[in-house]
């Protein structure tokens, strides 16, 4: 059987469009798996894992991570729950601070700020359900005061601590508080 030229053209165009749509979807879905520098990788360039590393001030041309607020100072800590639970502890004397927990894909897992933390001091424990049940057998005395975040799987990720600098004169104090922030084992 032979198709008329117009029908062949229509079939050709439809085939092109369908194939283009499939390629478009494949390209968009494959980008996250093929990025060279994820946020998780970038955080590692600022210091060792399992401790808060102060990121340089957000200034034009010297941004440590994209899309950070220049009014804030940031500290980041990379962790792997497979190496054990992670305890975050910080006391930052500024009107506003917040912490966001992100997994290795850069998705927000948990976040809070100094009002929702319920206390001036940040003390937060991140661990897997399994690690929590082990910890419950011999609980540390301050377990009740901690914000406990359970994850189902031992995730790798990073925490980003943001502290608002109300005035450049306070910048030194904020730096010290961020450097004194703890991120590590119990």
């Amino acid at each position: 059987m032979t198709l008329s030229p117009r029908f062949s053209l229509t079939v050709g165009l439809l085939a092109t469009l369908c194939l283009a749509a499939i390629i478009h979807i494949l390209v968009v879905l494959s980008i996250p798996r093929n990025v060279q520098h994820s946020a998780y990788d970038n955080v590692a360039t600022h210091g060792p894992d399992r401790q808060f590393n102060l990121l340089p001030d957000v200034q034009p041309g010297k941004e440590a991570l994209p899309d950070l607020d220049p009014a804030m100072k940031h500290a980041a800590c990379r962790f792997q729950l497979a190496d054990g639970p992670v305890l975050f502890d910080a006391s930052i004397p500024v009107p506003f601070w917040s912490i966001g927990l992100f997994n290795a894909a850069g998705e927000a897992v948990y976040s809070l700020n100094n009002r929702t933390a319920g206390a001036e001091r940040l003390s937060m424990l991140v661990l897997t359900t399994e690690q929590l049940s082990i910890l419950r057998e011999n609980p540390p005395e301050n377990l009740e005061d901690l914000i406990v975040i359970e994850t189902e799987t031992p995730i790798s990720g990073f925490a980003l601590l943001r502290a608002y600098v109300p005035h450049p004169m306070r910048s030194g104090t904020v730096d010290q508080a961020l450097m004194a922030a703890r991120c590590g084992g119990i």
């Binding site: 946020a39 994209p66 950070l68 976040s111």
Partner: peptide, 20 residues
């Protein structure tokens, strides 16, 4: 999937909902 691609390609750390 589009915002996932945009955010991971730019290595952007978003402002999480509890922050702002």
């Amino acid at each position: 999937p589009y915002s996932v691609a945009i955010y991971t390609r730019g290595a952007v750390v978003p402002l999480a909902s509890g922050e702002g």
